[in-house]
């Protein structure tokens, strides 16, 4: 049963590495922001899988809060891109 979880964790981890590469490399700032967005989604997925793997009772509470406040990072990064203009 944990084998599937391990494979999922490994694949999402590789996806996070790829988005880190895009953050470091990224030709424009918008590309970096998009890769940061993917990194956030990957982190949420990793939290869910690690929580289920370690039988934590609070897994879905954490994922709930993370998906609720996560989009604030995208909004504030978008605001940083436009230098505070709306």
């Amino acid at each position: 049963m944990t084998l599937g979880l391990d494979i999922g964790i490994a694949i999402i981890f590789i996806a996070c590495l790829a988005s880190t590469y895009r953050i470091v490399k990224g030709p424009s700032e918008a590309d970096r922001v998009i890769a940061g967005d993917l990194l956030l989604f990957g982190t949420i997925g990793l939290i869910a899988l690690f929580g289920v793997r370690s039988d934590s009772p609070a897994t879905f509470d954490i994922v709930l809060v993370a998906s609720f406040v996560g989009f604030l990072s995208a909004l504030s990064l978008a605001r940083i891109l436009t230098r505070g203009k709306r």
Partner: peptide
């Protein structure tokens, strides 16, 4: 879980 993880991999390939 594995289908979702593969979607993540596809997205990572996409941004590259």
């Amino acid at each position: 879980v594995i289908l979702g993880a593969l979607l993540f991999a596809s997205a990572a390939l996409g941004i590259i």
